[in-house]
Design a protein around this nucleic acid. Structure first.
Length: 900
DNA sequence: GCCCACCCGTAC
DNA sequence: GACGTACGGGTGGGCC
């Protein structure tokens, strides 16, 4: 095995053309074209970040004729000359690459491919591995045991097996394969009518081009004739597509070390080219303080590890952080662990760094066994940042992290949910005033990101150790603040921290989803969408994309001159649902667009996507619950978002039918009835509202009876609908204008409703006014349990900004209190499950609903107990009611009483 | 070619 | 402009 990192050879010319055609129009302010430079340089930076090569070169074609022109005058003869906009970019590009420290090679009389082939050949003789970066598949002929091809534009990597898979022939057959097909872009003739399929078929049958030519008589039909006609020129074509490995070069593979970037010249060049984002990165890089007084250990041998385990065991609290292969909790494998017990001191324990030359590390499994007693001891307090993730990762290795006591992400969130993001880098900046090394600084980002396991230890260790160190420092800064605020500390200690393992369990449990059912639905949706599309194109008199709001605007409001009902915040005519709904009364096309949109939404977001989210190992779908995202205290869900699965339409509800219970189990869904309105009743203390809930009335009907001054029995469907809109509007801090729009009535009518509502429920009016006043005076509002939401904009000069803050002030206490209550319920239910009921699994939370999977024979007991625990999660002045349903799937479990 | 803002729509 | 909290898909423009 070779011990050095691979030599990277970049086919500069192939990338140059590609970049030029991808970004033909980029210029700087002086009109000089820069797109190709930008594209190639970006590709090179990506390569550098990914491979961090010691040896690398970028090879370009030289101007003028090559030996191939001598061999065949028509070679590339049909090619138009290089456009000026491209030619102009070559000198600055060469300069830029040199300034980056990368050797540039331009050799006359041959092509870049020949130089690459020669260097590859020489490198192999010197036992060096080679990676060739090219967008051109001709070089597949060079692939071998230690020679691979990468296409950085699309991320594909071709080794020997990859070449065979892609082309159907091994690298040794590529020349023959290309010869048979010919190359129209280079004007190399092959065999007429022979494409990839025939070429592969013949090569499989005869073994080589020589053999095919020798036995050309055996091939029947028109292609046989074509082959025999081609015999005359095929040898020459073969010579043209064969790359030369014997070019005389003044530099060998040993002379291609990457040099340090010349920062001053780079800055100058980037300024001239006006590559602002790169320039900004460069400058940020330079301004970042590099020196740190921190002392970070790398634990590479058992003695060092034991020493640290002793320190951790003795510490009253230690910070812990994992480094992994993936951001996806369920997929991630451990790469290393870091620890800290005092500020500016930390250790990184690498366990699975895996790159050429990676030093030997302590063995993963045995080391984890050594750490297990410490990590699983509930009496050894742990501190982390977003520990739910670390708990999940460790569970992937069979370790159950216990003693999760402090989490800086959650502390920051409880302290002030809207102060900014709660990721570690933001907190370090906000609370400590330091810029930390970001993940992308060591592993790259976007397409150029590499797994942490491939990050070199000398970069990985300081980064990882710093995370544990910073977490500890953050805790020491944030915790005293939180501790001094009694109610918020309570939220943190008794709600958010205990919820961490509960959410972790729910995520890992996942939910079973039936892919077949969703596939069937996808097909049906596709068919109906297609029909609608045809019809819509017919009506419009042209084809257009029904999924493009922009094109719809054009068709409806330009071509068809439909009236503009409303504009989007950016001033475009809106094509939102209610707008199209209104237009649909008078015109046919909007109706079709609406129908298409509805189906398209279901298909792309749900029926197509959910099956892809099924985990291969578990066969189930695992969401992530985010505990520090919303301003109000709610959870959010992503990957997939299970909190917005359709329910309102029959079409949508079919998707819930795919959320199923396995054999022998049932889905049990329990949701709080009208929880936010009940909280409004409690918080406002309005006697009428309290009474209505105490009497168990249908609250919307009661509201309608009061507002429209009729008997409850006489309330019409329309009236109840209006009352429901009023009730929801109240929770959202809605104005009369908003209500009018919602109900499609005029403003004064809506104002009438609101006035009558407040006259009948004066306590609610007083509560709303009081909340606004309180918000203005103290700068925040809070929930029943003391969770705070700061509203700095409540005193804004701008009326619109202020109004927005006021609506938040109204909504947050109700939404937040509901969030607090269901979190309390989750803790209680989880406690019950963990201690006595392993036949019950809590699998989802949807704001006012908890979903369980229950062993069938335990359904009756679970139903009773879960109801009791949820109802008892808070003592309000109104009853808390819970509706429970049970079924084979999530849809069936809604409002179904199956008699258990 | 990649990234991101925008629009829209789903949930509670 | 006017109803709170989220997530995510598709489109299309920007990148310089």
């Amino acid at each position: 095995m070779n011990k050095t990192s691979p030599l990277i050879l970049v086919d500069g010319s192939s990338f140059l053309y590609r970049a030029f055609h991808a970004l033909p129009s980029l210029t700087n302010s002086r009109g000089e074209p820069t797109g190709a430079i930008y594209g190639v340089a970006g590709m090179l930076r990506k390569l550098m970040g990914e491979y961090q090569p010691r040896d690398m070169a970028v090879i370009f074609d030289a101007r003028g004729k090559t030996f191939r022109n001598a061999l065949y005058a028509q070679y590339k003869a049909q090619r138009p000359p290089m456009p000026d906009e491209l030619a102009a970019q070559i000198p600055p590009l060469h300069e830029l690459i040199q300034v980056m420290g990368i050797p540039v090679l331009v050799v006359g009389g041959v092509e870049a491919d020949d130089v690459i082939a020669t260097l590859t050949h020489q490198a192999r003789q010197a036992q060096m591995a080679v990676i060739i970066a090219t967008g051109d598949k001709d070089l597949a002929q060079l692939v071998g045991p230690d020679v691979t091809l990468v296409d950085t534009m699309n991320g594909t990597v071709l080794d020997e097996a990859g070449v065979e898979k892609k082309f159907g022939v091994p690298p040794a057959g590529i020349v023959d394969y290309l010869t048979l097909m010919g190359d129209t872009s280079d004007n190399i003739p092959g065999v007429n009518k022979v494409g990839p399929k025939t070429a592969v078929k013949w090569l499989k049958a005869y073994g080589s081009l020589d053999e095919i030519m020798a036995r050309a008589d055996e091939i029947k039909g028109k292609v046989g004739d074509n082959l025999r006609a081609a015999l005359a020129w095929l040898p020459r074509s073969r010579a043209l597509v064969t790359v030369r490995r014997d070019v005389a070069l003044d530099r060998g593979p040993g002379d291609l070390q990457v040099q340090e970037t010349d920062r001053a010249r780079l800055r100058e060049l980037l300024t001239r080219l006006e590559f602002h984002s790169w320039l900004a990165e460069l400058e940020e890089d330079e301004s970042a303080p590099t020196a740190t007084e921190a002392r970070y250990d790398i634990l590479m041998d058992p003695e060092q590890l034991d020493q640290w385990i002793d320190r951790l065991t003795e510490a009253p609290l230690f910070a812990l952080d994992t480094e992994t292969t993936s951001l996806d909790d369920m997929q991630a494998r451990l790469v290393g662990l870091s620890f800290s017990v005092s500020p500016h001191e930390a250790a990184y324990l690498p366990l699975a760094h895996d790159y050429a030359d990676a030093p030997a590390q302590l063995p993963l499994d045995a080391t984890l066994e050594k750490l297990r007693p410490l990590l699983e001891d509930p009496n050894r307090p742990k501190l982390g940042h977003h520990l739910k993730y670390d708990r999940n990762v460790l569970l992937n290795h069979g370790i159950e992290l216990q003693g999760i006591t402090h989490d800086t992400m959650l502390a920051s969130y409880v302290l002030n949910s809207t102060a900014g993001r709660h990721d570690m880098d933001s907190l370090a900046q906000r609370y400590l005033g330091v810029k930390t090394t970001r993940y992308e600084d060591v592993a790259g980002k976007g397409a150029r990101q590499i797994p942490f396991s491939q990050v070199q230890l000398d970069k990985a260790a300081p980064y990882a150790a710093e995370d544990a160190d910073i977490t500890l420092q953050l805790h020491r800064r944030i915790w005293p603040q939180l501790q001094s605020l009694k109610e918020q500390r309570q939220i943190y200690d008794t709600l958010e921290m205990p919820l961490v393992p509960v959410l972790s369990r729910m995520e890992r449990a996942g939910v079973q989803v039936d892919p077949e059912l969703l596939f069937t639905q996808s097909h049906e949706l596709a068919e109906r969408m297609h029909q609608i599309e045809q019809e819509a194109h017919g009506l419009a008199g042209c084809t257009f994309n029904l999924g493009s709001p922009k094109q719809i605007q054009d068709i409806l409001f330009q071509r068809q001159q439909l009236p503009v009902i409303r504009k989007t915040p950016k001033g475009q005519p809106s094509t939102a649902e209610d707008v199209l709904e209104q237009l649909a009364l008078d015109y046919p096309l909007p109706r079709l667009i609406l129908a298409h949109r509805g189906l398209s939404k279901l298909k792309s977001t749900y029926t197509d996507t959910l099956p892809e989210r099924i985990n291969r190992e578990t066969g189930r779908v695992h969401t992530s619950y985010h505990q520090a995202v919303t301003s109000t205290g709610r959870l959010s869900s992503s990957g997939p978002n299970l909190q917005n699965i359709p329910i309102r339409t029959p079409e949508g509800r079919r998707i819930r039918q795919a959320f199923i219970a396995p054999q022998g189990r049932q889905i049990l869904a329990a949701d709080y009835s009208q929880i936010e309105l009940r909280i409004m009743a409690h918080l406002s203390g309005d006697p009428g509202l309290l009474q209505a809930f105490a009497d168990g009335q249908d609250i919307h009907r009661t509201t309608a009876a009061e507002v429209f001054q009729v008997e409850a029995e006489a309330v019409t469907t329309q009236q109840r609908r209006a009352a429901k809109a009023i009730n929801f509007g109240l929770i959202y801090g809605m104005s009369a204008f908003g209500l009018a729009r919602q109900l499609g009535i005029d403003r004064s009518g809506a104002q009438d409703y609101v006035d009558r509502y407040f006259a009948r429920y004066p306590g609610v009016k007083a509560y709303m006014d009081g909340t606004r006043t309180q918000a203005r005076e103290q700068g925040y509002v809070d929930t029943l349990f003391g969770r705070r939401l700061y509203l700095p904009e409540i005193r804004a000069r701008n009326a619109q900004v202020r109004a927005q803050a006021e609506r938040l002030a109204i909504n947050a206490p109700m939404q937040g209190t509901a969030a607090d209550i269901i979190k309390r319920a989750m803790l209680a239910v989880d406690e019950w499950i963990q201690t006595t009921s392993p036949g019950v699994t809590m699998i989802m939370q949807v704001h006012d609903e908890l979903v369980f999977e229950v062993d069938t024979h335990q359904v009756a007991a679970a139903r009773e107990r879960i109801t009791a625990l949820m109802c008892g999660a808070a003592e309000l002045d109104v009853p808390l009611l819970v509706d429970v349903g049970v079924g084979e799937n999530w849809d069936a479990a809604h409002g179904q009483d199956t008699g258990y």
